[in-house]
Design a protein around this nucleic acid. Sequence first.
DNA 1: TGAGCATATAACTATATCGTTATACTGTCA
DNA 2: TGACAGTATAACGATATAGTTATATGCTCA
Lengths: 103, 103
Amino acid sequence: MSPEAVNLVATRFKVLSEPLRLQILQYLENGESSVTNVTKAVNSTQPNVSKHLKILQDEGFVAKRQEGNTVFYKIADESIFELCDVVCGSLKERYSEKSAIFG
Amino acid sequence: MSPEAVNLVATRFKVLSEPLRLQILQYLENGESSVTNVTKAVNSTQPNVSKHLKILQDEGFVAKRQEGNTVFYKIADESIFELCDVVCGSLKERYSEKSAIFG
DNA sequence: TGAGCATATAACTATATCGTTATACTGTCA
DNA sequence: TGACAGTATAACGATATAGTTATATGCTCA
């Protein structure tokens, strides 16, 4: 893998390395949602959620759609769930005694 | 996924979000290696590589083995390559025009 | 025991980013 | 047009971490 490719991959992992962003993605797995509803779902503030949604959008993980004055975001790259599955599987192996918290 | 699980997953992604650490993992894919050789391979400094190796080990991605006064590190969790493959695939789709740099 | 090599750690600077607060922007509706 | 709701952005403080330099630790061998 070339250095540029390594950097792009690292950036992708970095975007997924914030718990709040993972929570947002997890919530959006249920379907598209307005910023206000995402904010409520993840129990944060609107500006903070807005900022994180922008980061997720810049990386192509989510896409936005405007309707009136409300903006709806939805998952744009399903591979994130595959990534989480792989990580969870690995974590389950490593912390087999803690595996209960992964359901 | 519970909040604790989200945090553990986020931590895992964070460890993989540094280009140098990805380079180290990529190099170790060829087999175990001493710290000195890793340092040369990734073109960094010994203390820096040592620090990153510790981070990778704490997360269970690599394991160490001491022989005399040299320490050998090797991959301890093959799932990282699966993760990189998924990310690369997703990136290829997104930047299809740039896909050449991924080989 | 003492020199020298390999690795780890400590202390530091610089940079990045999270979350907050305040405010700007944009669209709707009376 | 004016008020308000939804979203985005700017500015700020606080925290975290990458990389460097210096040094400590631990092993080997003469």
